[in-house]
Every structure is written in structure tokens, then in C-alpha cells.
Design a protein around this nucleic acid. Structure first.
Lengths: 252, 252
DNA sequence: CCTCAATGGTCTAACACTAGCCCAATCAAC
DNA sequence: GTTGATTGGGCTAGTGTTAGACCATTGAGG
């Protein structure tokens, strides 16, 4: 009775599940992960250009690392030109990074950098979590305040100047996940967004695409406000599929 | 022009996004995270009772940690009664843990342990990622082999003995994510499943519930095989909603 | 001017983690 | 039996990380 209960047919693709569960415990050392996280906050525009990060002591606690490690990461970002660090009261680490003008980057190079396997992984992951988040939100009872936030984000995006567009687009997408009230889901969506942000930044913003995106954003919000999970899922899927198609077009 | 571009209305719920992006970089030290991960493999039945973990050297590489840290984690699990470690050739760390008989645990205690906020977070997260995974899989062109795996998992579950049920149920759900081919998505689903596994283990398995679950599983597979993302999403949502309702019933 | 609170800059001792090496035990094959 | 390959057990030197204290700079307000 103490023998293995594994039956032959179970071992067929158990290796896949072993890979999934026994994946690396940590992506790198604390320093690298911290740089990555701060870069996320900057590139996603969570900390806007000209704004400053929280004080080191506070930030170190939030990130669950020591101040020494945090300072190393900040210094690296400073030397890379993302931050301007100033001492004294009212000082801090100010964001100097300005999102690159779309179209100037070389999309092929970005794709080559991350590898096509990682690319499809990221796109698939994003499709799943964002569709899931929208469907969950559409299925829940929304307060007036939640509805207002959603409409506000949509309106911001419509009025956005070109240089603010990516940041507000990110804000719109992340708000959907945040409004579900699930930190885990919000983190997953932020992670997914980050993994494709370099890609998005390298895509030129054409008028036609922006108009498509705008109507798709409207469809998403309408479906969520109407409490229709399946319409919400479909709208998000169409929107993201559009991005994926755009990528394929620029790559072929 | 170098001033903050943040407009007043942007700051309304920027704090939420700051919390999301500037969340802790690491959940704990390497030892704790490793124990957690191994426990995940054991409790989810990825390594079946009686089977053994990969050799220490190999496993340490897979987990991206040193052998010393891995051995500490294994020793902790050995002392907690989950593993039996044997030396010499054909030795290794054998799983001795047998999943608890459902109904013996105190559901209320488990819920109290994790807190209701974390509970709804986990349930919401699981709902989103599993619905998303099923929809993505349904929207993709499946090979015959993929279809076979899906049907195999379903059949395994139908024939399952009571003591194997949870493990095969986990295998079924995770297979859906794995079949999308996205490691990120598979990892997210495994994480979601783990977060509710203690809960599931504490729920008695009643004949009625098992029958409901069986027909829901069939509906999920049918929708995926039919290539209908929305039916797939709906089927998964109904299935998971059933679990959530069951939880509420036992808690009130 | 001065003061003082907030903030970055720096140091140190303790602890965590790693890489690499060698030892000890086991057991199938010969 | 003896052997050899495989596996866990244990050690050490070096590096990464932390907590906490103290110093240096800045600028608003008195």
C-alpha cells in the first residue's frame, strides 16, 4: 500500500506539471528584481515623468528589501538616465524618463531581444488575464464610484495627447483589474502589461489604429457597465487580438 | 515642460496602482519560498504519494537556489512528516503525505487562518485566470494530441477513486492552462489553485456535488473542443461559482 | 539669518545564501 | 562478495542582504 500510486497514463505529461510547479523560486537577486520593479513603475507611467518615488525608507519597506539594496537599484537607474536624485528636504528620486516616441524604435530588434517563444507566452498570458479580469468585473455588482472611475479612465484616454497616450492606456487597462478588488489579479495584469510594454512602445501610433482602439475601449466599458461578462470578454479579446495582429503585420 | 504631467484627476486612485506595482519584491526568504513551493508540489499531487522528488542537485538547479537551502527546506518537510528521505543509490525524498479525508478538517478554521479578504482575493483571481485560460484554449486550433490529453484527463476524473479525486481534479484544471502553451499562464493557474487547495480539502465530498462537478467538467471540455470561447468561459465560471457557493453554504 | 524636519549618503556587524568540494550510504550488476 | 554509479550528508570560503545607526544636504518658515 505504500507503493507509488502513479498509474502509467499519468506520467504522459506530468513533466509539464513538474516544470510548472518546480519553476525557479526567484527570478534573480534582490538588486535585479528591484531594478525591474522600479523600471516597471516608471515605464508603465505609474510614477509620471517629473514626479518622484516615495522616500527610500518608505519604499524599502513597501518592496520588502533593505535600504542598501534599494539604493543600489536607484543608483543604477540614475546612471541609466531614468532618475534624477536630489538630496535634502523636498528632495527624492525624480523620474526623468520620457516615453520614446513610437515608431522610432526598431520593432524587430525588440522582438528578437525577447524571443518569439517568450513573445507568444506574454501575449497569451495577457489575453487570458485581461479577458478574465474584464469578465469578472462585468459579473460583479458595481458601485457608482467604480462606474465613475471606469468612465473617467475612458474619457482621459479619449482626450489624451500623444505623449500621454501609452500611460493613460496602461491606466485604463490596469484599472479594470484593480476594480475587481483582487490584488493578485491586479498584479498579474500589471505583470502582463509590462511584458508587452516594450513591444507597444515600438509600434507607431497611426490614426486608424487609435480610432479602432478607442471604439474597442468603449465597447469594453459598455459591456462591463451592462453587466455582460461574455460581451466584456469578447470585447477585450478583440482589442488585444488587434494588437497581436498589428505586431504580426509589422513583423512580416 | 519638465514639470509633473500629473493632472489632478489622475491622482484619484493612483495610490491603488502604486500599491500594485510597488508590492513586495519577494514573499520571504529563499528557505520559506522553497518550502512553500515543495508543499505546493506535494499538496497538489504533482508528485504523487510514494513518488520521489528529483535528486537534490537537479532540483536545486530547477528552483534556482543552492543545494544547502534546498536541503534545509527538505529537512523541514521531513520533520513535518511530508517526506521520507532515504540515502544511497535509488534513494531520494519520497512523498509520505496522504491528502486528508475531506470533511475531517474544520472549514471555518481554514478560512479564519487565511482571512476573508485573502479568501475573496484568491477566489476572484482563480475565477479570472481559469476562465481566461479556458477561453484562450477554446479560441486556439487544437491538435489531435491536445484533444486527447483533455479527454484523457476528463476520463481519469470520472473513474477516480475518492482518495485520488482531488489530485486528478487538480490535474484536469491545470492541464487546461498548460495546453495553452503559456508557462506564465500555467504558473498563474497553479498559484491560484494552491491558494484554494486547503479550502477544497476541507470541504466534504458529497455525491451530489461530485455529480454536478462531473457534468460541469464535461461542459467545459465540450466547449473547448467545439472552439467556443464564450461557452468555455461560462462553463468554467459556473463550475467555480459552484465551489464558491459551496463554501458560503458551509460557512453560514 | 537661523532652525529644524525631511531626505539622501555612508558605515558596520550580523545573518542568509551560494558554489564547489569531498564524504557516506545504498544497491543493482557483475 | 566486490564494484561502481547514484544519491543524500556535511564543510568551507566567499558573496549578497539586512537592520540600524549616524552623517550631510536642502529649503521652508520663523
Amino acid at each position: 500500500m505504500a507503493g507509488p500510486m502513479t498509474r502509467p497514463e499519468d506520467t504522459v505529461d506530468d513533466s509539464a506539471r513538474l516544470m510548472t510547479v518546480l519553476r525557479p523560486v526567484r527570478a534573480g537577486n534582490a538588486f535585479e528584481e528591484t531594478v525591474e520593479r522600479l523600471l516597471q513603475a516608471i515605464k508603465l507611467g505609474v510614477v509620471a515623468p517629473g514626479a518622484k518615488l516615495p522616500p527610500e525608507r518608505e519604499l524599502a519597506v513597501q518592496l520588502g528589501i533593505s535600504r542598501v539594496t534599494l539604493r543600489e537599484a536607484i543608483r543604477a537607474l540614475q546612471e541609466a538616465g531614468y532618475l534624477d536624485v536630489r538630496r535634502g528636504r523636498y528632495g527624492g528620486a525624480f523620474v526623468t524618463y520620457v516615453p520614446p516616441q513610437p515608431g522610432t524604435g526598431d520593432l524587430r530588434r525588440v522582438v528578437a531581444d525577447m524571443g518569439t517563444a517568450d513573445l507568444t507566452d506574454a501575449l497569451t498570458f495577457r489575453m487570458a488575464v485581461e479577458c478574465g479580469a474584464a469578465a469578472v468585473l462585468a459579473a460583479s455588482d458595481l458601485t457608482d464610484e467604480q462606474r465613475a472611475v471606469l468612465r473617467r479612465r475612458l474619457a482621459d484616454l479619449d482626450e489624451a495627447r500623444v505623449e500621454d497616450y501609452r500611460r493613460l492606456d496602461t491606466a485604463f487597462h490596469l484599472s479594470i483589474a484593480e476594480l475587481t478588488g483582487s490584488p493578485l489579479l491586479a498584479a498579474a495584469c500589471a505583470d502582463a502589461r509590462l511584458r508587452v510594454s516594450d513591444l507597444l512602445n515600438a509600434i507607431p501610433m497611426l490614426q486608424v489604429n487609435l480610432e479602432h482602439a478607442a471604439s474597442q475601449h468603449q465597447a469594453i466599458v459598455a459591456a462591463i457597465l451592462a453587466g455582460d461578462p461574455e460581451a466584456a470578454r469578447r470585447a477585450v479579446a478583440e482589442h488585444l487580438e488587434g494588437t497581436a495582429a498589428l505586431l504580426r503585420a509589422f513583423l512580416s
